[in-house]
């Protein structure tokens, strides 16, 4: 009796195949099947944002997506942000601004902030706060997180902004 489904998806740029039960969430598939445990579970009902990933360029809370729904999709997780040994400007800025304490919400914030900066390279403070309101952090009071996103935006503008607009 066959219980599992065969799923093919592109995860952090690599085509991956895995078997999952229909009731397993994308979050469970990432963590328990593919061992990508950087994506965290905080509530399993879409309210904390710790499991935020990009699915075909859209931000989703992976606890609310079923594994089989990822068939054919392109998924980006926190493990996909750095290029080889080079950290993404957001990762660097989070370190330099001390924008994490316990760090468990950090992967979700990084992915969400990346989605923002990919769309809007120069968001205002209010826009950053609005965008990140889907992600809960209980340690930092958000101050240093907002500043880190501002720093990363400024760095991205200085290094690539000109080229992207050509």
């Amino acid at each position: 009796m066959q219980k599992k489904m065969h799923v093919t998806a592109t995860i952090n740029g690599e085509v991956q195949e895995f078997l999952c039960e229909p009731r397993q969430s994308l979050l469970e598939c990432l963590r328990d099947i593919l061992h990508l445990t950087g994506t965290k579970e905080g509530c399993n009902d879409g309210n904390c944002g710790s499991c935020t990933v990009l699915m075909d360029g859209r931000l989703v809370t992976s606890c609310l997506v079923l594994g089989p729904e990822a068939s054919g999709a392109e998924i980006v997780t926190v493990e996909g942000l750095a290029r080889g040994r080079e950290l993404h400007p957001l990762q660097k800025a989070f370190l330099e601004q001390a924008a994490l304490q316990c760090g468990v919400c950090t992967p979700g914030f990084l992915v969400a902030a990346k989605a923002l900066l990919d769309r809007e390279p120069q968001p205002s403070e209010q826009r950053i706060r609005w965008w990140l309101a889907n992600n809960l952090c209980r340690c930092t009071g958000y101050d240093k997180i907002v500043r880190a996103v501002q720093q990363a935006a400024a760095e991205l503008a200085a290094t690539q902004g000109g080229m992207n607009r050509l």
């Binding site: 950087g38 997780t77 950290l87 370190l95």
Partner: peptide, 23 residues
């Protein structure tokens, strides 16, 4: 001074292992 924390890179790359990450 304000050095970057020693466990920082692991926590921004998703490599840091929390209790639920045990396999």
């Amino acid at each position: 001074t304000r050095p970057i924390r020693h466990d920082g890179v692991d926590k921004v790359t998703g490599r840091a292992l929390y209790g639920a990450d045990i396999q």
